[in-house]
Computed example of a mutant assay.
Amino acid sequence: MNSKQSYTELIKTEAKRLGFLSCGISKADFLEEEAPRLEKWLNQGMHGEMGYMENHFDKRLDPTKLVEGSKSVISLLLNYYPAETQNPEAPKISKYAYGMDYHFVIKDKLKALLHFIQEEIGDVHGRAFVDSAPVLDKAWAAKSGLGWIGKHSNLLTQQVGSFYFIAELILDLELEYDAPTTDHCGSCTACIDACPTEAIVEPYVVDGSKCISYFTIELKNEIPTDFKGKFDEWMFGCDVCQDVCPWNRFSKPHQEPLFNPHPDLLSMTKKDWEEITEEVFREVFRKSAVKRTKFQGLQRNIEFLK
């Protein structure tokens, strides 16, 4: 076994031990095929008021601009599918936000993996990324064979589904690279048909400025009244396109205690949410991604559902 092979096996074994669902590796090349797609999406204004999407265009496509001399992009998936969901009468929160903010949970695991690589292999330089930097997570994960990009523009994995986070380590270490997988959406249009705001404008293209997740999290101004009555009771994020996807019948509950929800979250009723105080908000979402929308933002969203 050559060193590339043994290093690759070593990294994948440790990733599994750290709790990652899977690990795929691709060559740190320029993402040629993504450039025109990203440019067109931005030019059509599908990013809405997410101005940051226009920044660092070249860095999004070229990993060597993020890590000098980078050779490999290690993509990792971490399951977040919950064992239980909210009270069915209550306004809904996207499942990824039930527990502790994933940025902290994953960052710690990535740092542990990078530390392990440096201990075991030696002088390796790299950086960890969890969707807060200009990295095209889904494109890298697809390139490294972890799944394909579905018609709802999320990464999908056969026999697994899509309820997972994607993260990367970009390293200046040469490794064995995985091959991309094939698309298994077939003629299915479940996600397109079910989207409450018709944000999936054509297969594989989501108009971010029409997405419920965008309105409830990213948009800081008032939600346009044209969308009144179309939110399907979502107050933070939206899982509709994932919930209806046939591949998600294979979703299994995660094993990460930090992703378990605050005990009150699942039992809160519609009335509890409508009367929520800032104190309760701070307690229930103390370390949660929901804090991003702030108390006022969540109140605005709940009000919009009435």
Rank of each mutant, 00 (worst) to 15 (best):
A199C: 13
P91T: 02
N154I: 06
I276F: 07
C211H: 02
S288G: 07
T189W: 01
I121L: 03
S132V: 05
D172G: 05
S267I: 12
P82Y: 05
L38F: 13
A190D: 11
P246F: 11
N87E: 04
H47R: 03
T8M: 11
L42V: 09
M46I: 00
F30T: 07
P246N: 06
I74S: 11
T216E: 08
D62K: 14
K306N: 14
K143A: 13
D264V: 00
L76S: 10
Y204P: 05
T225E: 15
E54R: 15
S209L: 01
Y80R: 07
D108M: 00
E68Q: 15
D172T: 05
V240I: 15
C23D: 03
C188R: 01
H184C: 08
V240L: 05
L265F: 14
K143V: 00
K252F: 02
E303C: 06
F285A: 09
Q44D: 14
G208K: 08
L66M: 13
D232V: 01
L266G: 09
K220V: 09
K210C: 00
E256L: 02
N43E: 15
F259N: 01
E34H: 13
L78D: 05
N55A: 14
K71Q: 15
D272V: 07
F20G: 09
C241K: 04
S288A: 08
P82N: 10
N260P: 01
L113S: 07
T216V: 07
V284N: 10
V290L: 07
E33W: 09
G161Q: 08
K107E: 06
A167K: 12
D178P: 05
